[in-house]
């Protein structure tokens, strides 16, 4: 396939019963970009993420990632190929420690034999130690190392969000998909998040797709924006173009001139 694009989606359609959640969706995403996907609730944004990561099978269409067709792959296969995600509603391994949440994700590319685990061979112990160190370093990037031994479910909300991104990054992905990272965050936390995402993008050479309702964040962060409405691509373009697109303003952004007047 076309090697210029990390992710290429053609004519993707998904329906639930009679409802068309996504219709004829297209995307060509070059590497090292940040793409924002916006749109009203129920527009099909999260459905798109679920199709991309293999949790929902599309009715038709093709998804190519890194030159490989991944359209009907299982979620774990897609994760191993290099697409990682965070969830809209936080889905941590609540009873596991913060560190274990990341370690279990770090081990994605490891192939430990069962017997070496039972007999604790030297290579096995070395490997385990390396995993721990890798996970620890990642926690430090997120400033979560002081909570390493706590159960994930006892963390504060913002920390849980960050831990989710840390866990997603631990699989060493090429493409990171973030679903509403700023939901429920105050302006300060949102600003920190913005800085963090930019830092991660540089540090791990990521391509990022994110869904977000916070327009401030989207407009500052994203290099390219797609607008979904009723499962269809309503508009796409640079942030400035989107802000001035009449259709998008009508469907989603709202007209600032008329705000409050009716």
């Amino acid at each position: 396939m076309n090697a210029d694009f990390l992710l290429k989606i053609d004519a993707l359609s998904v329906s639930f019963g009679g409802v068309k959640a996504l219709e004829n969706y297209k995307l060509s995403l070059p590497p090292s970009r940040i793409l924002g996907i916006i749109g009203p609730n129920g527009a099909g944004k999260t459905t798109l993420f679920n199709v991309l990561t293999g949790f929902i099978r599309p009715d038709s269409g093709h998804i190519h990632f890194n030159g490989q067709e991944i359209t009907r792959w299982e979620p774990y296969q897609i994760a191993r190929l290099g697409i990682s995600r965070s969830f809209q509603n936080i889905c941590l391994f609540g009873k596991l420690s913060v560190l274990d949440n990341v370690i279990v994700s770090c081990q994605i590319h490891e192939r430990t034999s069962f017997l070496s685990a039972l007999s604790k061979t030297r290579a096995y112990k070395k490997n385990e130690k390396a995993l721990r160190e890798k996970a620890w370093k990642l926690l430090c990037v997120f400033g979560l190392e002081k909570h390493a031994d706590r159960r994930a479910m006892t963390l504060a909300y913002g920390d849980q969000r960050r831990l989710e991104i840390a866990r997603a990054l631990a699989t060493a992905p090429k493409l990171l998909i973030i679903d509403e990272p700023a939901a429920g965050m105050n302006p300060n936390e949102t600003q920190d998040l913005l800085d963090l995402i930019l830092k991660l993008k540089e540090k791990f050479n990521l391509t990022i797709v994110l869904i977000e309702h916070n327009m401030n964040l989207v407009m500052q962060l994203c290099e390219y924006i797609q607008v979904l409405n009723y499962g269809r691509l309503a508009a796409e373009g640079l942030p400035l173009e989107i802000q001035q697109n009449q259709e998008v303003i009508d469907a989603y952004l709202g007209d600032t001139n008329n705000a409050g007047s009716n």
């Binding site: 990561t53 293999g54 949790f55 299982e74 979620p75 774990y76 994760a79 191993r80 990682s84 995600r85 969830f87 889905c91 941590l92 391994f93 609540g94 009873k95 596991l96 274990d100 370690i103 279990v104 994700s105 081990q107 994605i108 590319h109 490891e110 430990t112 069962f114 685990a117 039972l118 604790k120 385990e128 995993l131 866990r167 997603a168 631990a170 699989t171």
Partner: peptide
Amino acid sequence: RIIRSPYGRSMLAVREHDLAAQSIGI
């Protein structure tokens, strides 16, 4: 030994959250 191995961590992850576990390659 199984619980403390990568297998066991995967098992606990699956117990805690099936979908999240799959999303990290399990």
